[in-house]
């Protein structure tokens, strides 16, 4: 399992469009991908759950990935969270 903390750079936070991208990306991997914000942790492959985090720019998210392709998955998700749009 890999774990990493990241500050969200997305201008509008995890709104519909970036979340769509994030979930689409997460689905490409077999690893379990979890996003943790404060006390809540959600499955990154669940659109509803990720949206319901209500994460905005500047929030600190913990990304946990475990599975065969965990490294690639971690990097891909990180890229999205760190991008600005």
């Amino acid at each position: 399992m890999v774990k990493v903390q990241v500050e969200i750079q997305l201008k509008s936070g995890l709104h519909a469009r970036p979340t769509t991208r994030l979930v689409q990306e997460a689905m490409k991997y077999t690893s379990e991908i979890t996003l943790v914000k404060g006390e809540r942790s959600v499955n990154a492959k669940s659109m509803m759950s990720v949206l319901s985090l209500g994460a905005t720019k500047g929030d600190i998210i913990e990304l946990e990935v475990s599975g065969e392709d965990e490294d690639q998955a971690k990097n891909a998700i990180l890229d999205i969270l760190k991008s600005e749009e």
């Binding site: 519909a16 469009r17 979340t19 769509t20 499955n43 669940s46 659109m47 509803m48 759950s49």
Partner: peptide
């Protein structure tokens, strides 16, 4: 289109 794409992803939500 973005909204509709998001809706499609919601439909693919494993939780749902």
């Amino acid at each position: 289109r973005g909204i509709l794409e998001a809706q499609v992803m919601m439909l693919e939500d494993p939780l749902l």
